[in-house]
């Protein structure tokens, strides 16, 4: 089976697998690319700067649609999720590179990040008491359901991304085994679309969970504003 957990080399007692190596590779590539493009920012931008500005503005607008008042608080986290997962999903198109998001450990780590950041943003913006109160609203009977909901949605985030990416890779591999060299190309095109859609969905769900955690205060401050 496709497996990112086989050890490439050992770091003391730790087995370092392909997932970790690819993740760090993607992080380094993203950092270097961002540094290279933003090194000389100009008012009359070159093509790379225009592309980067387009990406940042699109993400900023998407975050602003959901959370109009708190864009700059949440924007760095969600944008990082989007960029990283998008790159990681697309990275398995490179021959020999195994996408880190096709490994359940990596997607679980990302989902845990979302899980903790929801509480972090909620407590930071609402305060601890107000945030904890939303667990027993409208009635304390709903407390176990809130807690179950927290756990299952984190699990669902992890399994959804993992299942999609792994099944795409596996489908391409199976078609390659059955049909021959150039047959999986349509599937790889589907892979591009699906990779971007899955990255969008992961980031969007994270954004909506965060919005849900800080929503009650928003609703009180601006009752006319549309909430989703």
């Amino acid at each position: 089976m496709l497996d990112g957990t086989q050890a490439l080399f050992h770091l003391g007692p730790l087995n370092v697998g392909t997932t970790v190596v690819t993740t760090w590779g993607i992080m380094i590539v993203l950092c270097i690319a961002a540094w290279l493009v933003t090194r000389r920012l100009r008012l009359d931008p070159g093509p790379f700067q225009i592309a980067l500005e387009g990406i940042v503005q699109t993400i900023h607008a998407a975050v602003g649609d959901v959370l109009p008042r708190r864009v700059d608080t949440v924007f760095p986290f969600v944008a990082t999720l989007w960029l990283f997962i998008g790159t990681a999903n697309l990275s398995s198109l490179i021959p020999g590179v195994h996408s880190p998001t096709a490994d359940l450990s990596a997607t679980t780590a990302l989902a845990m990040l979302v899980f903790f950041s929801v509480h972090w943003f909620g407590i930071r913006i609402q305060g601890l008491r107000a945030y904890l109160r939303h667990y027993i609203s409208p009635s304390p009977i709903l407390l176990p359901f809130h807690i179950i909901g927290e756990i299952t949605r984190t699990l669902a985030l992890a399994v959804r991304l993992f299942g999609n990416m792994m099944s795409l890779e596996m489908a391409a591999l199976l078609v390659l085994l059955v049909a021959g060299l150039f047959a999986p190309i349509p599937l790889l095109m589907l892979h591009i679309v699906e990779a971007l859609v899955q990255a969008y969905i992961f980031g969007m769900l994270a954004l909506i969970y965060i919005a849900g955690a800080i929503q009650s205060l928003e609703a009180r401050l601006s009752p006319k504003e549309e909430e989703t």
């Binding site: 669902a156 399994v159 959804r160 299942g163 999609n164 859609v197 969905i201 969007m204 769900l205 989703t228």
Partner: peptide
């Protein structure tokens, strides 16, 4: 946006 999120939920 809502459609995409709903589809993701169903797809999962």
């Amino acid at each position: 946006r809502t459609l995409f999120i709903g589809l993701a939920m169903i797809e999962s």
